[in-house]
């Protein structure tokens, strides 16, 4: 049955879910001022640049995550916006992936974007490619696509591992404007030096809130910040309490 050792985790999950759900459904945040994130602002510019150059864009979610991973879900949410822009500008979007399930989901998203933009005929099914489940097979496949197609913009959103720098450097060599975003802290440093813009950690999860007018999504981002403020306050408060002999760290965190 219920493991008492999981009680603290359960409370944190319920608290986070409760706050996010409350702000999302009540749309409490009427005047939300969003901090400018250059990487997100550059997404539309990148698609526009590729369209002007007559080049395609490449969007890939990395080798490290499958469809169950929140990072992949956040990346697919972003794909919806990128594909929508690409479809409305008449820009071709290439989506290579290592996972056939992600490929099917991406196919559905991109096709829907082209349909909604009124250009269903421009959707090419073979632009969504299942490359290889092998890490460096996938890296080689994406590198091949980038080297041959010379895309105007590359979006690297998702969970990346050892292939991150191989992809980012190949894109850099081929002159593409690159925007990356990942939760992999080790790969972030590679993206920061090799890409034009990088979404750091949770910025990837909040990116869709910047790109939508939906108040519920934006309010949920406010809730995320609120929870984070509580965590930071606790991280500052608990060591001070410990100095006075009140050690609650294990009980709360």
């Amino acid at each position: 049955m219920f493991d008492p050792a999981s009680l603290v985790l359960l409370i944190w999950v319920l608290l986070t879910c409760g706050v996010v759900a409350y702000f999302s459904y009540r749309r409490r945040v009427s005047r939300l001022r969003l901090r400018a994130i250059p990487g997100i602002a550059a997404i539309e510019e990148a698609v526009g640049r590729a369209t002007e150059q007559g080049k395609p864009i490449v969007f890939t979610t990395g080798w490290g995550g499958d469809i169950q991973r929140p990072t992949t879900l956040a990346a697919l949410n972003l794909l919806r916006f990128v594909a929508g822009k690409a479809a409305s500008y008449g820009c071709r979007i290439l989506f290579p992936t290592h996972d056939p399930v992600i490929a099917e989901a991406a196919k559905e998203i991109i096709q829907t974007a082209y349909n909604e933009a009124g250009h269903p005929d421009q959707f090419r099914e073979d632009d969504v490619t299942f490359v290889s489940p092998s890490q460096f097979g996938y890296a080689s496949g994406v590198d091949g696509i980038v080297s041959r197609q010379k895309p105007g913009a590359i979006f690297l959103f998702g969970t990346f591992e050892g292939e991150a720098l191989i992809l980012a450097e190949t894109g850099n060599i081929n002159g593409a404007l690159q925007i990356a975003g990942t939760d992999s802290t080790i790969q972030l440093s590679f993206f920061i030096v090799a890409c034009d813009y990088t979404l750091i950690g949770e910025e990837l999860y909040t990116a869709s809130a910047y790109l939508t007018d939906d108040r519920r999504v934006q309010s949920s981002m406010y809730a995320q910040d609120l929870i984070r403020a509580v965590v930071v306050a606790l991280l500052l408060l608990l060591p001070i309490l410990a100095m006075f002999g009140v050690n609650l760290y294990k009980e709360i965190m």
Partner: peptide, 14 residues
């Protein structure tokens, strides 16, 4: 970064 990622993961999943 990981604290933000953890909260962001729960919020995205929700």
């Amino acid at each position: 970064i990981l604290i933000g990622v953890g909260i962001g993961s729960v919020a995205t999943a929700l």
